[in-house]
Every structure is written in C-alpha cells, then in structure tokens.
Amino acid sequence: MKKAIIFDFDGLIIDTESAWHYAFETHLKENFQYDMKMEDFLTCIGSTNDHFMQRLNEDINLGDGKEELLRTVNAAAKDRSENLPLMAGIYDLLEYAKANDIVCVIGTSSNREHIERHLDRLNIRQYFDHYVTSDIVENIKPNPDIYNKAAELIGLPKEDIVIFEDSLNGLIAGNRAGIDVVIVANMVTKHIDFPETYLDLVHSMEDYSYQDLFSKE
C-alpha cells in the first residue's frame, strides 16, 4: 500500500510541455524555416535542453544566436502557460490524498520560482508538504537526485511511495531511485516509446483508478 506521492510538475500537473513545444516549433518554422522533429524535442522533456540545442545547432548553425533564441522561446512559452488549468484528474487526486492523509511532494527539474508561481495561481500550494526543485539538487532528471531527496523528505520506505510522471527522463530517474513510477502520458509525451519499467501507464489521471494504489491489500 502506498502512503506518499511524488508528483512531477511540468506536463503532469499543468501542460506546460505543449506550450514549450508550440513556442519552439513556431519560432523555428517562422525564423529558420526549420521543421522541428518531435523525437528531438522529447529529449529535453523532464531534463535539460542540452541535447536538443546541440541537434538544432548541427542542423541550422545557431552560432551566437542560441541565447537569443532561448530568451524568445522562453518568453513565448511562459506567456502561453500563464492561464493553463490543472491537468484532468489532478485536483480530484489532490483532494483524495488530503482526505486520506497521503503525503504529497513535488519533484521537478524546474526551478522553485516556476512551480510556486503556478501553485499560487491555481491555489493548490496547500496540498503539498515539500518541493524538490532544480535549485536544491546537484543533478536533475534522469539522475535520481530529485527523487532520492524527495523520498528523504517524506521519511518513508521507498516501497511506500509512488511517483507520477509523464516523461522518459522522469521514468529513468524514478527507476534509478528505486521508486515505483506511474506514467501519465500527455499530448507531447504520448509519442514516447516508454520501456516497460513503469508500474502503470495511462493517458489521463482522470481515467486512472489510483485509489487501488492506496488501498490495503
């Protein structure tokens, strides 16, 4: 029986990943006549954009324009994300966790300012006991540091914890940390061919019978 949840944030709680995808795709098409490949973009989901930017530089030779491109895309994605609602089923899960004394922690490769801005905007900060962000670990996903730190803060055996994730980098991080992972694939990460190292794979929290995870056997 699980007693705690570690939530990824981007693409799991709100769909910022679609906003990032649109911002990159549109900018590259309009300014470089470049058709971005989904498989390249997926490498940065849940982690850094290093591999993705390296591939872009190989294809279109960004040169000194890399930082300007990132500033422009970051601003466009942030603007597009400012009114995003919670992903389907997330609010009900948070209410269920609160009613059943299930510990909830966020474990994300994003920074604290990013998640707190959205938590406050959506009025859900009170549901989470801790946040583990890129600001407080040495290595982000797919390294297990974020999930190991989250488990440490929870203070329960790892077998009592479940991670909800949407990305391959997050799945790898959870596997390396030795914690069960449920993949909730979104409109972007549904294109990933996930290895079957997850506990479950679903396409919406709304359609997932997560109550079974927290029921006594």
Rank of each mutant, 00 (worst) to 15 (best):
E113V: 07
M36Q: 15
L119C: 15
N49C: 14
E58D: 05
K216I: 12
D10Y: 00
K149L: 09
I14Y: 01
S134L: 02
E25G: 03
P85F: 01
E25M: 10
I146K: 08
R80E: 02
A4K: 06
Y96M: 02
I154D: 04
T16A: 08
A99K: 07
E17K: 06
L69W: 13
S18F: 15
E25T: 13
K98D: 14
H130D: 05
C104M: 15
C44Y: 02
E95H: 10
M53N: 12
G63N: 01
S18Q: 15
L213T: 06
A99D: 12
S134N: 04
I192V: 11
G65S: 08
L12N: 01
M53A: 08
E17D: 08
A173S: 15
T108C: 05
I154S: 04
I172F: 02
V103G: 04
R80N: 15
R121N: 13
P85Q: 00
K98T: 12
H21W: 15
H130L: 13
V181S: 10
P144M: 06
L94P: 09
A97M: 04
I140C: 13
D193M: 15
K37F: 06
E196S: 14
P85C: 01
T16V: 13
D180W: 10
A19Q: 11
I60N: 03
L93C: 06
H191T: 01
D200I: 02
I136E: 15
N61M: 11
F24E: 02
Y127E: 03
E165P: 07
D64G: 06
A75Y: 13
L153E: 09
D40M: 01
L201M: 14
A88V: 07
I115T: 07
V181P: 14
R176H: 08
N100G: 06
